[in-house]
Amino acid sequence: MTALMPRLFGDFTDWLESDRPLLPGHVIRLEDSLTDQEYRIRAELPGMDPDKDIQVSVDGAVLSIHAERRYEEQVKGRSEFRYGMLQRAVRLPGNADADNIKASYDKGILEVVVPLRSAEAAGRQIPIAGS
């Protein structure tokens, strides 16, 4: 049994270090910051073409980033690159101005800037109907 354990773990780590595609929905690494004026998200997506490989969308209060790193056929050799779909969803602050979100891509970093409305403009008073 003990002789089997290193072989099992070795096979598993070999699979992790192989050039097999990513599992569906692999998570994108990101960092974010929040000020009174904006919510800024920076996502690490090196080696991608923002016109073909990256999509940024907003649905309600959720900003989604979808990307795909395509597998390039190799003749022989070793590759530690990971390929496949990557995605990440982030809940936006309540006062996010979803109509004016801007995104840019430079040197492998996708940056999304979400402007924030002032506290007064973020919500609205709901009238209460009487009986």
Rank of each mutant, 00 (worst) to 15 (best):
A89F: 06
P50V: 06
P46R: 12
A61M: 14
G60L: 04
D49Q: 09
Q37F: 10
G84F: 05
S79Q: 13
E44R: 12
E111I: 09
S18D: 05
R91N: 12
G77I: 04
Q125R: 14
D53R: 04
F9W: 07
D49G: 09
M48Y: 06
G10A: 04
N100I: 05
G130N: 11
F12Q: 03
E38Y: 08
S18T: 02
E111G: 01
D106E: 13
M85R: 09
E44C: 10
L45C: 08
K102T: 14
P6G: 02
V27T: 14
S64Q: 13
D11C: 00
A98H: 01
Y83Q: 07
E31W: 07
L116Y: 03
S18C: 04
I126W: 00
A121P: 03
R7K: 10
L110W: 02
N100D: 14
R78Q: 14
L92K: 03
N95C: 10
H26F: 11
L34W: 12
L16I: 10
Y71V: 00
K107T: 07
R42K: 13
V114P: 01
D99M: 07
L86A: 08
D97K: 01
E120F: 04
I41L: 14
L116W: 01
R7L: 07
D36G: 09
D97G: 00
V62P: 05
D11G: 00
Y71I: 05
S118F: 03
R88C: 02
R20F: 08
D49W: 12
Q37C: 08
E44H: 15
F9M: 01
L22I: 03
G47L: 10
E17V: 02
D32Y: 10
L4H: 00
R70Q: 15
P127N: 10
L30R: 09
E17K: 06
I128W: 06
E73P: 01
V62I: 15
A67H: 01
Q87D: 15
D99W: 06
L8V: 09
G60A: 07
S131L: 10
S118E: 12
V56I: 10
V75R: 15
R82Q: 15
I65N: 05
K107H: 11
N95V: 01
A121T: 02
R78I: 13
D32A: 14
E31A: 11
P46E: 09
R42L: 11
L110R: 02
D32H: 14
K102A: 13
M48A: 11
S118M: 04
T13W: 08
P46N: 09
L8N: 03
R42P: 00
E17W: 00
D32Q: 14
S57F: 04
L4W: 00
